[in-house]
Simulated scan of single mutants.
Amino acid sequence: MTAFSERVEAISISGIREVFEAAGEDAINLGIGQPDFPTPEHARQAAIDAIEAGDADGYTSNFGTQSLREAIADKHARDDDLDLAPNQIIATAGGSEALHLALEAHVDQGEEVLIPDPGFVSYDALTKLAGGTPVPLPLRDDLTLDPATVEAAITEDTAAFVVNSPANPTGAVQSVADMREFARIADEHDVLLISDEVYERIVFEGEHRSPMEFAESDNVVIVNAASKAYSMTGWRLGWVAGSERRIERMLRVHQYVQACASAPAQYAAEAALSGPQDRVEEMVAAFEERRDVLLDGLTDMGLDVPTPRGAFYAMPAVPEGWVDAVIERDVVVVPGRAFGEHGEGYARISYAASLDEIETALEAMRSATRAVQ
């Protein structure tokens, strides 16, 4: 019998799927990580126009279209004060592929990658698929990653560390001072900083600043996507940005696993980035309103929840049995352990749902809380 690779045997199907399967068909889904808004109409129309004109029929450059990469570079100049050239950017099949490229190109067998815990589920799995060893780092009480914790964990085997702000699953936003420190650590210890900035536009308090802005070396790579800011999760369009030498190595992987990102999605993302931004602002305002309703409800039932300052997740500390009790009441939430060992005793709640759904879900959570206390 043909054996499976040790890399694949070391990972498993995400535990989040088990939660979805345990809930009823009519359950309120507060477990899914995607906006509940439509893709902006001008982005949709750009893809339709490209298809009808025949512009999306063939491969694009492995890098992605020149015009999309120029739009991404303009976005980073506008939002992040970064001076990136189009040849420092690869359009990818979502932020997930961008993360995969960064790890595959920079991590050798057995090398360590420091990841936040609790953190996005792909950090652990993609590190293992790259042959690396994930090293989980506990978070502060406010669920941010402490630069001192990162620096103390660096060894001669450390290849990279991951910073995610605003963060999934916590909604935490790192301070500007933290981002400066992360950049310093990457410079002084000569390790790669993979900055996951997929939620950068969804900030309620504080501000997003990319650590690339503060780095003196080329030891920062940015992972980003149109998925969350423009409600384009299904389009699968992301990008990775870095120095030319790092992009060239990542392109070696990308050209064989993907060739190029979907052409229609590239045209849609270009329009999303270059066109009106009012829909993004409206979506962020709606998420903030929903956050406040959810936080008030969770606090009123006695749960301790750090205030999420971005993204669209809250991560309260919950009593044992709480998640199961909520799911039994047809509301999907995700147990914190799905995001790492330090997530035990927490739950991730997505407020990418209507206010009516959130209010109904809170009633179920109140009932569940009374049942397990």
Rank of each mutant, 00 (worst) to 15 (best):
A93Y: 13
P306C: 02
L126K: 13
G94F: 01
S262P: 12
N224P: 05
M301T: 10
I72D: 08
T149N: 04
L126T: 06
N164S: 08
V8L: 15
E151Y: 04
A125N: 10
V203K: 01
I48G: 00
E151P: 09
D356F: 03
R78N: 11
S96H: 15
D74R: 13
E156D: 09
A47G: 10
D26T: 12
L193D: 00
A73E: 09
G275S: 09
F63E: 08
G238K: 13
A225H: 05
T369D: 09
V334P: 00
V240L: 11
D49V: 05
A148Y: 12
L294V: 07
L251P: 04
V163D: 09
S231N: 15
E216Y: 06
C260V: 00
S217G: 02
P147G: 07
R184Y: 13
R236A: 06
F161P: 12
V240Q: 14
V150P: 10
E200P: 00
R370A: 03
N29M: 11
G64H: 10
N168T: 11
V293S: 02
A183P: 04
T92S: 01
H42D: 13
I202F: 09
L362I: 02
E328C: 08
A311Q: 08
Q266V: 13
S67A: 11
E270H: 13
P308F: 15
A229K: 03
L298Q: 08
S274W: 10
D218P: 00
R17L: 07
L30P: 06
H342T: 00
V176G: 01
G297E: 01
D304L: 02
L237N: 06
G302K: 09
M1V: 05
G345T: 07
R78D: 14
D108A: 15
A73Q: 10
D36L: 12
A10V: 06
R249H: 11
M301S: 06
V221L: 09
E363Q: 12
E111L: 04
I11R: 07
L294H: 02
S12Q: 14
H208A: 02
H76R: 03
L237A: 03
E181I: 01
Q45R: 12
E197Y: 00
L303R: 06
A265N: 09
A368Q: 06
T2D: 10
I32S: 15
R366F: 02
I115R: 01
